[in-house]
Simulated assay, not measured.
Amino acid sequence: MAVETRNWSYWRVLRDCRVWVLLAGDLVSNVGDGMIITALPLLTLRIHGGVPAPLAVAAVEASPYVLATVLAFTVGLTRLRIPPRALIIVDCLLRGGVLAALGLLAMADAITLPVLVCGLLIGSVFRLVGMSARRLAVTAMAAPEGRLAANGLLGTSTSLAIYAIGPVAGGILAAGHNPGIALLVDGASLVLLLAAAIVVTPQAAGSVDGESIPRSGLRILRRVRVTARLLVVVFGFNLFYMPIEIALPLLVRGPLGGDAVSLGLIWAGFGVGALIGAVLTGLLRKLPEQRLPVLIITAWAAVVLLLTVAPSVPYAVAAFFVGG
């Protein structure tokens, strides 16, 4: 007779000290990453020199994803497999060291735009696969009944740290000090995650119930057609989302007449909205699954249109809250 199991609550999952230690490291590092959402564009606007400001900001924002995306596709679509624990450790060491070095250069007013772009390009090689490795490690350590809650904790802490707490802290630091200090703090924020990966993450993290990780993501795309279609939708959505991150600091410093704290508050509005959305996700289960993504994408488009006519920073905060 089969025994029905119930999904664990957040608190039940957090009873495992290994899980909450790794989640704590993930949370702290995400706060650091959220800080440079506001600090990087502001630093770029200080050092762009003769390069047009929009192009300079675009280059800086895109550079962490170029080599990282190449590696992510290589790992995901081929048979190359790297243990999640190793990915987390390498990412922390490389990205933490590079961010700290860039922060020190910026605080000494010795950084240039090419140095910043190249540093972010090289330092973020393992960023995307490292973030995926965190999720694999946490879910592998949780019991089967706790995996849903573990994923929920990761998503909630990411929204809270990267888009709510981090941008405000980064804006305050950038307004009161050199924006480079936010990069230095971001690099330091990876120390706790590094220690958690070394101490509590098992060597075999990444396999689930004794099953090996699928050999090829390309095989999954071929077998499960809806996965390929969703990949196209997500790629297109993010393709048209990223220009918002480029335009927002220019909008704040230009038409809205805001400062670093204003930019942080707008991102915080987005983060709070995303956090509320994550908490209320369970209420959407009864809605048609195929129509819901279309509705969400359409609503986000409407929010962006509202943002283009924002007359003030509070209006922009409210618009981004709804978008989040």
Rank of each mutant, 00 (worst) to 15 (best):
R127S: 15
I122G: 08
V125D: 00
V261R: 00
V224T: 14
W20T: 04
E289S: 15
A137Q: 02
R253K: 15
N30G: 05
P144V: 11
A133C: 11
V199K: 11
D109R: 12
P293M: 06
S262N: 01
L120W: 00
V129Q: 07
A182E: 06
L148E: 09
L105F: 04
G76F: 03
A169E: 01
P293F: 01
W8I: 11
A310L: 11
G176E: 05
A68C: 08
A169V: 08
F270G: 00
L102F: 10
G236T: 07
R79P: 03
S124H: 05
L230W: 08
M242F: 12
L190F: 14
S262M: 08
R12L: 12
L283A: 15
G180W: 03
A268F: 06
R15E: 11
G258P: 02
L295M: 15
T156N: 13
S212C: 04
G323N: 05
F240H: 09
L306R: 03
L104M: 13
N178E: 04
V234H: 04
V168A: 02
E4A: 07
P84K: 04
F321V: 05
G236I: 13
L248D: 00
P288S: 02
G257E: 06
L173W: 10
L42N: 07
L128T: 15
A100V: 15
V272T: 08
R147G: 02
A150T: 00
R215P: 01
A110C: 08
F270R: 03
L23P: 07
A169S: 04
W267M: 06
L67E: 09
P249S: 10
C118G: 12
F73Y: 12
P179C: 14
F270M: 14
V317T: 08
R219E: 04
M131H: 04
L287C: 08
G123A: 05
I213Q: 12
P314N: 14
L113Q: 02
L263V: 00
A142E: 06
T5S: 12
P41F: 12
C92R: 11
G103Y: 02
W267H: 01
A150W: 03
P255W: 01
P311M: 11
T5E: 13
L23G: 08
L27C: 10
Q203G: 15
R134Q: 13
R253S: 10
L305M: 07
L287A: 14
P249Y: 11
E145L: 05
L221I: 09
R223H: 03
P293G: 07
D91S: 09
R18H: 02
A24C: 03
V234A: 09
L43G: 06
N7K: 12
L239T: 13
A247P: 14
R6Q: 11
L287S: 13
L250W: 03
G323Y: 01
F237T: 08
I198F: 13
